[in-house]
Computed example of a mutant assay.
Amino acid sequence: MTIIFGHRGAAGTHPENTMPSFQAAIDLGADGIELDVHLSKDGIPVVIHDETVDRTTNGTGYVKDLTYAELQQLDACFLFPEWSGKASVPSLEQVAEWIRPLNVKLNIELKNDRIHYGQIEEKVISIIGKYTLESRVILSSFNHDSLVACYHISPHIERGALIHERLYQSWEYAKTIPAASVHPYYLSADQSMIAESQAHGVMVRPYTVNDEQMMKDLMKAGCAGFFTDYPEMAVRIRKSLKNG
């Protein structure tokens, strides 16, 4: 079965990387959620996509220059004014506590490919362990050195290598990290790449898949999973293919 991850929650219909978005994704039937983590000025793993707060909140400045308390004061409603005052920047621990009793997966993207955050791997993995989420978490990053660091800290937590361009024999590259999965940009993941990678034991989960026909094609190809801003569409398509 192709696993459906709500990208930044249900980012097509809710403020991305916020608790309302994560809850919506699960309510809509997603098998898991994907989120992004930076470190605040005081070293707290916080859930936000960009290096700055400018795009998704009513604040300005770099995440690394704001304390967690300062980040909590921001309105993160983004493109959805109806959520104003109800959507804030959550901490990773807040999400971990919420997801613990739920039977869903959690993909944590470490956003350290542009800014170096000291000990982000240790801090994130500590929270994963505190809430016993090791078997349900995938750690992903474009910074593959960071994934190697994660392997040395906690080898039993799955790692997914994010890649933007197509790699020659991506399954062989993934094994050097080692990573159990590759998460390619959707245009870099054709059926041969998916089939060959998965035949060699490396799962493929493209991002960000919002086209209905592409969702159908990935499911028919037996793709391990994908990330989408519209989990409700993906769930509907998967049900129709199953019933058809």
Rank of each mutant, 00 (worst) to 15 (best):
L28K: 04
H7W: 06
Y117E: 09
N143Q: 02
I26H: 03
K220V: 09
R114M: 13
D217N: 14
I177V: 12
S91D: 08
S154Q: 14
R236E: 15
P45R: 04
E51T: 01
P184G: 02
A199I: 03
R166F: 03
D65W: 01
A195I: 04
I120K: 00
S140I: 00
Y173Q: 01
H7T: 07
V209T: 05
P20C: 07
A25L: 04
I157R: 03
S135H: 14
A189W: 06
D31T: 01
G43C: 07
H200T: 09
G222K: 09
I177P: 02
N143H: 04
S192T: 14
N112W: 02
V235E: 05
E134G: 12
E16W: 01
K242L: 13
S181N: 06
K239F: 00
Q73P: 00
N17E: 07
A87F: 05
I127F: 06
R236Q: 14
R205V: 05
K86H: 15
S154I: 07
D190F: 08
Y62M: 15
T2Q: 10
A69W: 02
I4P: 09
E158R: 15
D50M: 07
A199W: 01
H183K: 05
T2R: 02
I115D: 11
S192C: 06
E97A: 15
K239A: 14
P20I: 09
V95F: 12
E82W: 08
L74E: 07
Y230V: 05
N112K: 08
M193H: 08
D229G: 06
L39V: 11
V137H: 02
H49Y: 10
A10G: 05
E158L: 13
S84L: 05
H7Q: 11
R159M: 08
G85L: 05
H144C: 07
E196S: 09
G225C: 00
V182L: 13
A161L: 12
M219A: 03
F80M: 06
P15D: 11
D36W: 10
V95H: 08
Y230D: 04
N112E: 03
D190E: 04
D27A: 15
A180K: 14
L139E: 00
M215E: 10
K111R: 11
E232R: 06
H156I: 11
L241T: 03
L106Q: 00
F142T: 09
K239L: 01
T13K: 08
W171F: 06
E196Y: 06
M19V: 15
E134N: 13
P178W: 10
L92F: 11
G160Q: 06
A234G: 07
H49Q: 13
P101Y: 02
L79K: 14
A69H: 12
T13H: 14
I128V: 15
W171A: 00
H116C: 05
V204S: 03
R236Y: 02
K239V: 00
A180L: 04
A149E: 14
I153T: 09
N112R: 00
W171E: 07
V89H: 05
F5H: 08
S154H: 13
I125N: 01
R238G: 15
A221C: 09
D217G: 01
I115H: 10
P15F: 11
P81V: 13
K64M: 08
W83T: 09
D190V: 06
